[in-house]
């Protein structure tokens, strides 16, 4: 048994999407998440990488209880939150924040961005006066590399990358225990990516927060994450410490993925050899097996 209670425990999580015909008969089923289990310890960053459409975002949404699982269990700081209702979730929501993949849809177009960032401070009654909130918003803007004067503007006045930083400022506002970050830096230029990743690391060190970091940029995952889980077709096919995974990938999909990492150097990039893998849906009875301490592979 682990001595510390994980921030997050996900047990055999399943989410199927079904399409029905006009008679209500099921005509099609997408097994978006199909038996996923993992834990995230306090202060840990777990990277979730893998195939487009493998169920990473769906897993994130289930963890946040923005969507309901077909089966399985989710525990947050030891508490089973799988079936909590909206009112019961309120307290949990403060400790669990999200930064989305799509900065365009995550901001209300009619709200000044400063108010959007202040909103969770208000709704969770963290800062009571407008003056306090104003000051905190200015601090948060500075932390994510935005000019505090931008708080008065509306979302459409910002570029994609700028909007993403606003989303990050809002998630940070309530000092959560866990941030589910779904491709949080994808839309940013690399110097701001560096800034945000440094910020994530600083906040983790200062406040001990944990991250579920969903990303496609393996170089950044390798830099930021303690452990990494690789998803394919709704399943985790491999999970290991970052060193283990990048030094000794075992699953053929992980090997293909790592070999496809682009290298920011024209000579090396054009000479890079790729390992090909024709993705197959893992058999349902396959289970993760520990091949060395802390290194699990679907077999």
């Amino acid at each position: 048994m682990n001595a510390v209670t994980p921030v997050l425990e996900v047990d055999e999580l399943v989410r199927h999407f079904t399409t029905k015909d006009f008679l209500g008969r099921e005509v099609h089923r997408v097994r978006a998440v199909d038996g996923v289990s993992f834990t995230v310890a306090p202060g840990e960053t777990l990277g979730l990488v893998g195939e487009s459409g493998s169920g990473k975002s769906t897993t994130g949404r289930l963890v946040l209880r923005l969507d309901d699982p077909t089966e399985g269990r989710i525990r947050f700081e030891g508490q089973d939150i799988t079936h909590l209702n909206a009112a019961q979730l309120l307290a949990v929501r403060r400790k669990m924040q999200v930064v989305f993949q799509d900065p365009f849809s995550s901001l209300n177009p009619r709200m000044r961005v400063g108010d959007a960032v202040a909103e969770p401070l208000k709704s969770h009654r963290i800062l009571k006066t407008a003056a306090e909130r104003h000051e905190r918003v200015a601090q948060l803007f500075q932390r994510v590399g935005l000019d505090p004067r931008f708080a008065e503007r509306f979302p459409h006045q910002f570029s994609g990358g700028q909007r993403q930083r606003i989303g990050i400022a809002r998630a940070l506002a309530v000092s959560p225990r866990l941030i589910v970050a779904d491709e949080p830096i994808t839309a940013l230029d690399v110097s701001i990516q560096a800034q945000i990743v440094n910020l994530f690391m600083d906040l983790q060190q200062e406040l001990g927060m944990a991250y579920l970091f969903i990303a496609h940029d393996l170089a950044m995952v390798r830099f930021l994450c303690h452990r990494v889980a690789v998803m394919l077709r709704g399943r985790i096919v491999e999970m290991a410490t970052t060193e283990q995974l990048f030094a000794h990938p075992r699953h053929p999909y992980t090997q293909a993925l790592i070999s496809a990492m682009p290298i920011p150097d024209p000579d090396r990039e054009l000479a890079r050899q790729r390992i090909f893998y024709e993705a197959v849906t893992p058999p349902r009875e396959a289970r993760l097996a520990e091949v060395e301490k802390g290194h699990w592979v679907l077999a």
Partner: peptide, 23 residues
């Protein structure tokens, strides 16, 4: 170009706070 994570550095989980990306 300076702010990219080093492609060749060994990943060193756990000591992330000791390293920083160049901003």
């Amino acid at each position: 170009l300076q702010s990219l994570p080093d492609h060749d550095a060994p990943p060193s989980a756990g000591v992330a706070s000791a390293r920083r990306l160049v901003q």
